[in-house]
């Protein structure tokens, strides 16, 4: 069974249909990339998986999204548990204006009562996971806003690691970063893949080709093609996919 199974998903922003009958099965502990020109609905699709679209007025969603076999659009779905399980990394690093320690401890603190020793343990583990511990271990009281953008994005990933999700959604996580920082985050993603199912939205096709195992190509709200990354990039089935990855439009 797939980790995430999206069935007949339609999404409307008022009268505008942003997602049209999307069907997609996402495998566990793999990196799945969503590519496509801006406005094609790839971020919208991503935000369906932790129901962040609920925050927007006038959104209507039909269809099913099964995660571990359970439809998250069922009435009575616990959004807190869903978002704990399906975490998100945003386009621009968005650390809270708190200390580094408090940023990482934020999730564990909201989800349960932990004593200081447990929190310190989680913070250390999470920072080690994203290879920030050695750099930051003496600066845990500093404001997270003083870090470089790359470090901020790593911190946001560590903040997510601290709530032990199953799935990580990454919405163009490198678009605010320079090429060196980007390649470092990509290395980190390859490492994270061992523990998490990762979905990444990117407008950078090379990035999708480098990091992902599966690639979905979206256009005007439809999922045009989906398959193994190598196949999608070398022998695309759809002419539109081929035109896009060869840079004919985008």
């Amino acid at each position: 069974m797939s980790k995430i199974d999206i069935q007949n998903l339609d999404l409307f922003y008022g009268p505008f249909q942003a997602l049209i009958n999307v069907n997609l099965a996402i495998e566990e502990k793999m990196i799945t990339a969503l590519i496509g020109p801006s406005g094609c609905g790839k971020s919208t699709l991503l935000r369906c998986l932790n129901r962040m679209n609920d925050l927007i007025d006038g959104v209507k969603i039909t269809g099913k999204v099964l995660i571990d076999g359970e439809n998250i659009y069922e009435n009575g779905t616990d959004l807190v548990m869903l978002r704990k399980k399906v975490g998100m990394v945003f386009q621009r690093p968005n650390p809270f204006p708190l200390s580094i320690f408090d940023n990482i401890a934020y999730g564990p603190r909201t989800h349960g009562n932990m004593n200081q020793a447990e929190l310190e343990d989680i913070v250390e583990k999470s920072l080690r996971h994203v290879e920030l511990w050695d750099i930051l271990k003496d600066k845990l009281d500093y404001s997270a806003l003083n870090l470089s953008l790359e470090q901020q994005q790593r911190l946001c990933i560590a903040r997510l690691v601290a709530v032990t999700p199953d799935v990580m959604l990454m919405d163009e996580p490198c678009s605010a970063l320079d090429p060196v920082a980007t390649s470092k985050i990509e290395e980190l993603m390859a490492e994270l893949k061992k523990h998490y199912t990762i979905l990444i939205v990117t407008h950078n096709m090379q990035q999708a080709a480098r990091v992902s195992d599966r690639t979905g190509f979206m256009l005007l709200g439809k999922l045009m093609e989906y398959g193994e990354t190598r196949q999608v990039f070398t022998t695309p089935k759809e002419i539109k996919t081929e035109e896009y990855i060869t840079g004919r439009y985008g």
Partner: peptide, 27 residues
């Protein structure tokens, strides 16, 4: 307060009220 703070907090599974008093008010 930047919208990204609110989204970041909610995406970590915090409730609306937790988001208000732990992120938005301090910010």
């Amino acid at each position: 307060v930047p919208r990204s703070y609110k989204e970041g907090s909610l995406a970590l599974g915090a409730t609306h009220w937790q988001t208000i008093h732990r992120v938005i008010i301090p910010a």
